[in-house]
């Protein structure tokens, strides 16, 4: 299973290195969404009653960051499965005799690596645009790892279902967004606690993200074969 996963992940990352879709399309999209949030919410407006005083933009920056990541992830997930849907590659994977759990782990791993790159760059963009100061890096790191793995695994699982459909471009967001709503909630709450405190409020959310990540990994390993057959 793990050798199959390595094979698939290496293939997907090699395709990304060759096509540079993440660098030339997904990343600019993420940064543009971030910028538009900045235009839409005035940085001069202050949150009433907050001490120390924070702008509304800074206050909502955790949510904006994760929404941006989620939107960009949809593009990445769509890309991850459009390369399989093209030219009968899904049939090739079915015929190859690879362990479906290995295919799932490999595709999810490639998505997670690409999401991690995206999050670093979008995170730097958020710090610069929204004036956010980093704090409680430990909680932030756990949150980012948990949320990224959960998004990568759940997204991979549901994007597979849409891969064989003619309307997959519109179907992927419809399937994936509701499933990832709890991840968005948990990641936003944990990030908010890490940045603005109290930190103790963030750990239960980070724990929830870890549980989601493990749950989606387990579901993927067990169910991906059926999903691949149905796609």
């Amino acid at each position: 299973m793990l050798s199959d996963a390595r094979l698939i992940a290496a293939k997907d990352l090699r395709i990304e290195a060759s096509s540079r879709v993440l660098l030339t399309q997904v990343l600019p999209f993420g940064l543009m969404v971030l910028l538009l949030f900045g235009f839409g919410i005035s940085p001069d407006r202050q949150v009433l009653g907050e001490v120390p005083r924070r702008s509304v933009l800074e206050q909502v920056s955790p949510g904006l960051f994760w929404i941006t990541v989620l939107f960009a992830a949809l593009l990445g997930l769509g890309r991850s499965f459009s390369i399989e849907a093209a030219d009968g590659n899904l049939d090739g994977l079915r015929l190859g005799g690879l362990d479906p759990a290995g295919i799932f782990l490999g595709k999810a791993a490639a998505v997670i690596v690409q999401l991690a790159v995206l999050e670093v760059i979008v995170g730097v963009g958020a710090i610069l645009l929204f004036g956010v100061s980093l704090a409680n890096v430990g909680l932030l790191a756990v949150t980012i790892v948990g949320a990224t793995v959960a998004i990568g695994c759940a997204g991979t699982l549901y994007a597979t279902l849409a891969a064989g459909q003619r309307v997959r471009e519109t179907l992927v967001p419809l399937l994936v967004l509701p499933v990832l709503a709890p991840v968005l909630l948990g990641a936003t709450q944990a990030t908010e606690a890490a940045l603005f405190g109290p930190v103790s409020d963030g750990w239960p959310w980070a724990g929830l993200l870890g549980a989601f990540a493990l749950l989606y990994i387990a579901i993927g390993i067990v169910a991906f074969g059926s999903f691949l057959e149905e796609s």
Binding site: K11, R14, S18, S19, I83, D87, G88, N89, D91
Partner: peptide, 11 residues
């Protein structure tokens, strides 16, 4: 070997 060739364009 079907009508599709099952090849990755970017490889």
């Amino acid at each position: 070997m079907g009508h599709s060739t099952a090849l990755y364009d970017d490889l």
